[in-house]
Write a protein that binds this DNA or RNA. Structure first.
Ligand SMILES: [Mn+2]
Ligand SMILES: [Mn+2]
Ligand SMILES: [Zn+2]
Ligand SMILES: [Zn+2]
Lengths: 144, 144
DNA sequence: AATCTAATTGAAAACATTTTTCAATAAGGA
DNA sequence: TCCTTATTGAAAAATGTTTTCAATTAGATT
């Protein structure tokens, strides 16, 4: 079941702007800001307003199909997500981001913090940062 | 060693705006946006420009003394941080946020993801969300 | 295929946030 | 007290987001 199918299944129309935003995000390896999405589509001769980009991202976020990815060096951007429990790992060199499956690894941490704080934890935000294989090479092999 | 001391120790001047922003953040239990900081200080009859709030937050962030706290329902805000490895837990009811000590709990997760992705992980962003003790009461006891 | 209707769009304006600029100020050392 | 220069504030510019509303169009109905 692909993103467009999910959209229409939930009773939302398959408009041209929505199709274009989704297709662009499907191809992108980096999180994109609304402006970046708008510009990229303009260059592909897709006429659509920046407003529609915002509205599409809002809708897709509601449906859980896109995720905000934070990157200290960049404005927050959006990426398509597969459904289910997962997080993102972001390259500090080229800013490519990838999903990884969430696990129960932080369950113990959550239990600990619940005890310490008396909070009832129901959600979490987790991202990893580092260097992707390509950027590791550039970093070490850079001298010669 | 308090925040003001650290500031001046690093060769930064202890200006009135900086003192005021730090003191306000020290008292606050919620992450504050630049605007909120500015308004709060105006009401305390501290004359300072919004620009100085931005500049102070930028400096304190560089020094690692403040941390950005994300809250899906709010604009990102700033909180003072103690030095060292820690993260924040945010109440989805009253938006109060608290630090908790970072641990090696996610080391295994990081190892796993490094193997899966061939990334070299060097940093991470982790926040927990839930209900603080007070808001748990309001939620359960709310009926009568 | 033509018609209908409400969801969706785009353009513009309004609103909000952040950064830049630069002359005036003031912190802290001499 | 004087000096130097980091820092400030006001204004403008730049950037980012939301609202409004008439025009369009996706998809259902005939
Ligand atoms: Mn997880
Ligand atoms: Mn940690
Ligand atoms: Zn990379
Ligand atoms: Zn609470």
């Amino acid at each position: 079941m692909d993103y467009k199918a999910i959209l229409s299944q939930k009773g939302h129309r398959l408009s041209e702007p929505r199709k274009q935003v989704i297709e662009l995000l499907q191809q992108s390896k980096v999180a994109l800001t609304p402006q970046q999405i708008h510009q990229a589509l303009q260059q592909k001769n897709c006429k659509l307003g920046l407003v529609s980009v915002y509205r599409t991202l809002e809708l897709l976020t509601e449906l859980g199909l896109v995720t905000v990815v934070y990157d200290p060096q960049l404005n927050p951007g959006y990426m398509l997500s597969t459904l289910g429990h997962h997080h993102h790992i972001v390259c500090q060199g080229c800013h490519k981001a990838f999903e990884f499956a969430g696990s129960n690894d932080i369950d113990q941490l959550i239990k600990r913090v619940e005890k310490e704080t008396s909070f009832q934890v129901s959600d979490h935000l987790l991202q990893l940062f580092g260097l992707c294989p390509d950027c590791q090479q550039k970093a070490t092999g850079g001298g010669f």
